[in-house]
Design a protein around this nucleic acid. Structure first.
Length: 258
DNA sequence: ATGGTTGGTCGCCAA
């Protein structure tokens, strides 16, 4: 089984690239973040033409998540109990071939000291409480998506530039708490290199200078890690060439499970 | 601290 996580930064603007990613990688499950489309306007017909079906949790203008799969998923859930901002569409989960995938778009947080940063901490704590109360860490389970958190120094081009957001001690501690519950960074099972990034700011030619961060993550339980046979970031999605036009600022995270 | 690109929407807010 192949699963992909990707912050598309608007599904409707990026649809042709989404179709290209599906054709290139042939995933069983595609977890999208920042779809920026209401459920009413979701392009279900175009997804079905690709041979897929979509479970959606969207809203107008901001946020929005979706699960796009070849086959029907089991136990699909919209959002989570205890969400401090339930009006923001940030979580959708479901079971694909026996593995539970919790697709998340974490609150960005803006900067330490702001209300948005406080909300990010509250949101992450509430999400962990929901996950640990609702699910078992001895089951195959993967929490994946745009975490807006840099796990380690080697995951930032210049970690000191990001200590006010994305790489603050409190944010890293939230990730550690998720590890303590019994999950591991699945990308790191198969990649040892420093400076492998998943996001580059659109501004200041950040991709050209490779000023990026690895903030798109998949945290899997031991049962998920045991069957995770491959993990990679699809840098070609942002590179120039056939796909030069309008890339997302994030690239897809590809995961295989045996 | 400022900077300055993209998307949704149509004036700015969010990232």
């Amino acid at each position: 089984m192949r699963a992909i996580s990707w912050n598309v930064n608007s599904l409707r603007t990026r649809f042709e690239r989404v179709a290209a990613v599906i054709n290139r990688h042939q995933p069983d499950l595609l977890c999208l973040q920042e779809t920026k489309v209401t459920d009413e306007d979701f392009p279900h017909d175009a997804i079905e033409e690709l041979g897929y079906i979509a479970e959606v949790h969207g809203q107008k203008t901001y946020n929005g998540v979706a699960l796009i799969s070849r086959d029907e998923l089991e136990d699909v859930r919209i959002g989570f109990d205890g969400d401090p901002c339930p009006e923001q569409a940030r979580v959708i989960s479901g079971v694909c071939q026996g593995v539970r995938f919790i697709n998340i778009y974490v609150v960005n947080g803006k900067e330490i000291g702001t209300d948005k940063y406080e909300l990010k901490m509250k949101w992450l704590t509430a999400l962990r409480e929901w996950i640990s109360s609702e699910f078992n860490n001895d089951e195959p389970l993967v929490i994946l998506g745009d975490f807006n958190i840099v796990p380690e120094e080697r995951d930032a081009h210049d970690p000191d530039k990001w200590r006010h957001i994305h790489f603050s001690p409190e944010e890293v501690a939230q990730l550690d708490a998720l590890r303590d519950w019994g999950t591991t960074d699945l990308f790191r099972l198969h990649n040892d290199d420093d400076h492998v990034f998943s996001w580059w700011d659109y501004r200041r030619q950040a991709f050209r200078f490779d000023h990026g961060l690895r903030i798109d993550l998949a945290m899997g339980t031991q049962r998920a890690a045991k069957i995770c046979s491959f993990a990679s970031l699809d840098r070609d999605e942002r590179r120039k060439g056939d796909f030069e036009a309008k890339p997302s600022d994030h690239i897809p995270l590809i995961l295989d499970f045996s």
